[in-house]
Design a protein around this nucleic acid. Structure first.
Lengths: 166, 166
DNA sequence: GCGGCGTGGTTCGTCAACCGAACCCAGCGT
DNA sequence: ACGCTGGGTTCGGTTGACGAACCACGCCGC
């Protein structure tokens, strides 16, 4: 993201873009909200339906989709004195979307009716301090904002402007 | 996100959830892709349309929406020898979605046809090292994953189990 | 072994969103 | 005057979301 170069959009193949790819998986309505509930520990169809208020048909479809994509697994289980049920649990693949959810949440906390306290506070379990998401480079520097990031399309290795070798 | 507590979803008001709120703003189809292009430096309607391949009517609608929501501004300008045009530029509010885009991108890089190099590489402009997004707590600890995060609905102030002061 | 109930769906009709293609207008260059 | 380009709007058709109703399974009480 965040072109410092004049326009990396020229020869960058959008069809392969990871943002588009990810949105193709979780970009439909309700998908990310289903995952939010999953992170909150909600696992059963009825609970999801109650929590989200989504139409049952849509919820069925999204769950099937997320299972098919490997973000959730359907796990059968049986509570004592009840018949077998199944619940939806996050996989590693699904769990790895956590930062994306947190990023969306932080934006909402900051910019939407943001005078009061955010509806949901995240704290580090080990120390109780609030957690937040940030960019850092491999050398350990905190990256302040988009302006400090250079986006380079791969395939052409940085397009070195002083050695226009071709 | 990420309940360590048994079920914070019980009394958590979904209608106020920041994830839902954010998705209400940028959750429609194409919105986040428009923002991705904005971060890449694409500013003009025709360029956006070419890059995205979105229907023009939808693109018009998304741009108007993003302007109305204050994520983009329409800036008139005039190139030499051309008539006046206007371009769409990120505001602070829009720029602040950068982490969300990066999070989605990183997920795609990792999980979608992830054998080769990611289509777009992000590096720190000052030092050239690759950048990545991560959770950290205010005490400076790196947070490994969702499991290390506790989500607490506000309104009830953490439900402190050792000092049940009420 | 029959009816009721809760979970987990599916089906159906309606209504909104998205789509591609065509059309339109303003202003520049010729 | 004419065509070209940028930036839209309009239009019919298709897909998707919605809410309400319906269905199947299996536990429970009777």
């Amino acid at each position: 993201m965040t072109a410092t170069t004049p326009d990396p959009g020229q020869d960058f193949d959008r069809a392969r873009c990871s943002v588009a790819g990810t949105l193709a998986v979780v970009g439909e309505k309700w998908s990310l909200l289903v995952l939010r509930e999953a992170f909150l520990g909600v696992r059963r169809f009825a609970d999801l339906q109650r929590a989200l208020g989504a139409p049952r048909a849509v919820l069925t479809d999204r769950l099937n989709r997320l299972v098919a994509e490997g973000l959730l697994v359907r796990v059968p289980y049986r509570a004592p004195g009840e018949r077998e049920r199944h619940e939806y649990r996050l996989t590693d693949r699904g769990r790895d979307l956590h930062p994306a959810l947190v990023a969306l949440m932080q934006w909402g906390d900051r910019w939407l009716a943001g005078d009061g306290a955010p509806p949901l506070a995240l704290t580090h379990r080990d120390c109780g301090a609030p957690v937040s998401l940030g960019l850092r480079c491999a050398a350990g520097h905190d990256v302040g904002g988009p302006r400090e990031v250079t986006a380079t399309p791969t395939g052409r290795p940085a397009e070195t402007p002083d050695t226009p070798a071709g």
